[in-house]
Amino acid sequence: MITEPFEYHSPTTLEEAWQAMAETGADGKIVAGGHSLIPIMKLRLASPKYLIDIGRIEELRNIREEDGRIEIGALATHYQIEASDLLKRLCPLLPETASEIGDVQVRNKGTIGGSLAHADPAADWPAAILALEAEIEARSARGSRSIKAADYFLDLMTTALQPDEILTSIRVRAMPPHTGQAYLKLHHPASGYAMVGVAACVTLTESGAVAKAAVGLTGAGAKAVRAVAVEEVLSGKSPTNHKLDEAAAVAAQGLELNSDLYASAEYRGHLARVYTRRALAKAVERARGASSLQPVAVQG
């Protein structure tokens, strides 16, 4: 459990970081909280010759809001997000997701940007990011660009980030009225990763129908996905138990499901359906609670 030798850089500005990246090229690797990269380096599955630690770039650490637009710096730790009153109020899905990551020690060190850049197929953030239709800010010496969550996750641990780009922040919108959000997962008993994790955001109309549903699914396949088929079933419909069942039934549709020692592909597909159903039900319940509307009598 000892890494290969590497050279350590700790830039204090983005410019310095870009310069280090340009100089080290494919031999360099950015590290933030180190909770994805360091373990695989210790196993010698990754052996970058240069480690560029962006942890001292203070501007990447903030969580702020302006006119309903929330920006979370890439270096915000899971715990920082879990404990953020601002997020609890405006986008509770993020603190709820953070609270399900690893353990306290991991949450104290690991960062949202690091997790998203690593894009482990069973990480928790991707589900929430997809369901929130977040935008991922990537900056390089060439300039800045914003990547839609739906376009961000390309394949197993592969993202839309270019080699010269640094993920600098994540932007989400404050939760609209009559909206409920929920993140539920089945923890792997050893790693704590999501066997399956489902993030659901449901906005209801005045009459209690689904104005918008967004569902992000992680852990099931090689990358996190948006469960579009589920959303389509619900759109414009009253979220009755029956309707939620119907929507959840298509959660794993078209996915190439992972299988490992702990859960077969078939079981993962089943979990995707059950957890989608549960996350949706919880989000709907919260949406109803959040609105001043009387709950609609629903029978399955």
């Binding site: 010698r44 197993l156 790693s191």
Partner: peptide
Amino acid sequence: GLIASVGQRLVQATARQVVN
């Protein structure tokens, strides 16, 4: 060796990605 004992979680997905 190493890949088997530390990578079982991702080995299948990795193989699939290499083939694709």
